[in-house]
């Protein structure tokens, strides 16, 4: 009986460990309290890899990538002084063979991680500018 309980617990732990994994691109990019207007940061970041920045009716920031018939849509989640990427949809356009109608998972991960990195670089540049001001003020 104890053995079955142990197996059950181990299965539960393994399952919870897998479900708690977060993709790298989903990990929020923190900007603490250094940035008051995130729009210029996102505007520059999306240009690194040819994404298009958009807004929805509520003013939330979205982005779209169209690359070699792959259409990817994401939302930028701005909360707790950080920006996270949420994948909304993926679509392979103009495909005729069913087998090739899915966006390649490795490519998708690469594009999303690259976008997160671009946001990270722009956030770092903005924070560095603040740090430079603070440094010059002490000189």
């Amino acid at each position: 009986m104890n053995r079955y309980a142990l197996i059950y617990l181990l299965t539960l732990l393994t399952f919870s460990a897998h479900t708690s994994e977060v993709n790298r691109y989903e990990q929020p990019v923190p900007y603490v309290n250094y940035i008051t207007n995130i729009e210029p940061v996102l505007q520059k970041a999306v240009q690194y890899y040819n994404w298009q920045l958009k807004t929805d009716e509520q003013g939330h920031f979205l982005a779209e990538l169209l690359y070699k018939d792959n259409r990817i849509n994401i939302a930028f989640i701005d909360e707790n002084n950080s920006i996270a990427i949420k994948l909304l949809s993926t679509k392979k356009e103009n495909c005729k063979k069913k087998k090739r109608c899915k966006v390649d998972e490795d490519d998708l991960q690469k594009w999303l991680v690259n976008l997160r990195r671009a946001v990270g670089v722009e956030v770092t540049i903005a924070i560095k500018k603040q740090a430079m001001k603070a440094y010059l003020a002490t000189e």
């Binding site: 990270g120 670089v121 770092t124």
Partner: peptide, 27 residues
């Protein structure tokens, strides 16, 4: 060096790293 100068140098160093920029992940 002042703490402000050190912080600036670290962030600047992250962005100027040869070959690849490092990004801010928290503090």
């Amino acid at each position: 060096k002042s703490p402000e100068a050190i912080k600036f140098a670290i962030l600047d160093g992250m962005l100027r790293t040869k070959g690849y920029k490092w990004t801010f992940e928290g503090e």
